[in-house]
Simulated scan of single mutants.
Amino acid sequence: MSVQVHLLFLGCVALATLAQGLTGFAFGLILLGLVANLQVLPLGEVAVVISILTLGNAMGTLGGDRPQLDRGVLMPVLLSSLLGVSLGIWGLGALGDQQIVWLRLLLGVLIVVASLMLVVQSRPRAKLSGQPSFWLAGGLCGLLNGLFSSGGPPIVYHLYRQPLAYEVIRNTLITLFAANAAARLGLVLAQGQLHAATLWLSAEALPLVLLLSWLLRRYPPRLSLRGVRWLVFALMALAGVGLIVDALPGLLAVY
């Protein structure tokens, strides 16, 4: 790879880290999207790098002082998401290509609708939702991660509608996605698919991720929760539209 490609890759990593530090999600969404558009690296290689850097981002963001977390919220979404990942991976092998395409299209439409609802319903709920809703949102997150590696929107939408502090929501999301990344890395290691080139790319970008995560934790930007919700809306809408665009060629080929 040329020096220019390395710099482009690090620029993509920096943008993804800033978005993740502000909202608690979208690191993989932004990095994968930018790399795909710029065509600087093979996407299969970047997917593994994302898992490694997601863990680094979590260490940089949640390190130091004890992070603000609500265990009553974290545990159900964490456990159900890990179960959902296993079910999603199984479903990926059990479903046919046409069914997967239709599911991708439906998911994209639902994500766009959810992003709109997030800003239309600008006020959070008056009281915390019941425990079953957190199990359901976490399970859907894991299921969609296993099927499409796009599990963020259900849990992001659910958490940002709760009467929780911004820091609690962000830290819960970062912890959840770090756990999912660790599970995916374990699978990659078990299959012997972790290559030297992937490790070098991760080692190159990891110091930048740790530095930016530490700076965001040390000098947090003064954003209102409303401003963060609008940023989340934009990222979720981008994810939904991306899934729809990916699904359309497959549907047009069939019909």
Score class of each variant (00 low, 15 high):
residue 107 L to N: 03
residue 131 Q to D: 06
residue 119 V to Y: 07
residue 137 A to M: 09
residue 135 W to D: 06
residue 111 I to K: 07
residue 95 L to P: 04
residue 107 L to Y: 15
residue 97 D to N: 10
residue 111 I to H: 06
residue 114 A to R: 05
residue 124 P to S: 08
residue 111 I to E: 03
residue 131 Q to M: 12
residue 96 G to R: 10
residue 126 A to L: 11
residue 101 V to S: 15
residue 119 V to T: 12
residue 107 L to E: 07
residue 109 V to S: 01
residue 136 L to M: 12
residue 116 L to N: 08
residue 106 L to E: 00
residue 131 Q to L: 13
residue 113 V to K: 02
residue 129 S to N: 11
residue 128 L to W: 08
residue 113 V to N: 02
residue 108 G to T: 04
residue 95 L to T: 10
residue 106 L to F: 13
residue 125 R to Q: 13
residue 110 L to A: 15
residue 130 G to L: 09
residue 129 S to Y: 08
residue 109 V to D: 05
residue 123 R to A: 14
residue 115 S to R: 03
residue 96 G to A: 13
residue 137 A to I: 03
residue 134 F to Y: 14
residue 99 Q to V: 08
residue 94 A to P: 01
residue 128 L to N: 06
residue 137 A to K: 04
residue 105 L to I: 02
residue 108 G to E: 05
residue 112 V to I: 14
residue 105 L to R: 03
residue 94 A to C: 08
residue 133 S to P: 00
residue 105 L to C: 05
residue 114 A to K: 02
residue 95 L to G: 04
residue 121 Q to M: 12
residue 96 G to H: 13
residue 105 L to A: 15
residue 116 L to H: 03
residue 136 L to H: 02
residue 117 M to Y: 05
residue 107 L to W: 01
residue 122 S to E: 12
residue 104 R to Y: 00
residue 135 W to H: 03
residue 108 G to A: 04
residue 100 I to G: 07
residue 105 L to W: 06
residue 94 A to N: 09
residue 131 Q to Y: 08
residue 107 L to Q: 05
residue 102 W to L: 14
residue 106 L to V: 13
residue 137 A to R: 04
residue 107 L to R: 00
residue 111 I to F: 06
residue 102 W to F: 10
residue 107 L to S: 10
residue 122 S to L: 07
residue 99 Q to G: 13
residue 110 L to C: 13
residue 120 V to G: 00
residue 105 L to P: 05
residue 112 V to K: 05
residue 116 L to V: 11
residue 134 F to Q: 01
residue 116 L to W: 15
residue 122 S to I: 08
residue 122 S to G: 10
residue 109 V to L: 14
residue 98 Q to S: 14
residue 132 P to T: 07
residue 102 W to R: 06
residue 119 V to C: 04
residue 118 L to S: 08
residue 95 L to V: 04
residue 123 R to D: 12
residue 110 L to N: 00
residue 96 G to I: 02
residue 104 R to P: 01
residue 98 Q to R: 14
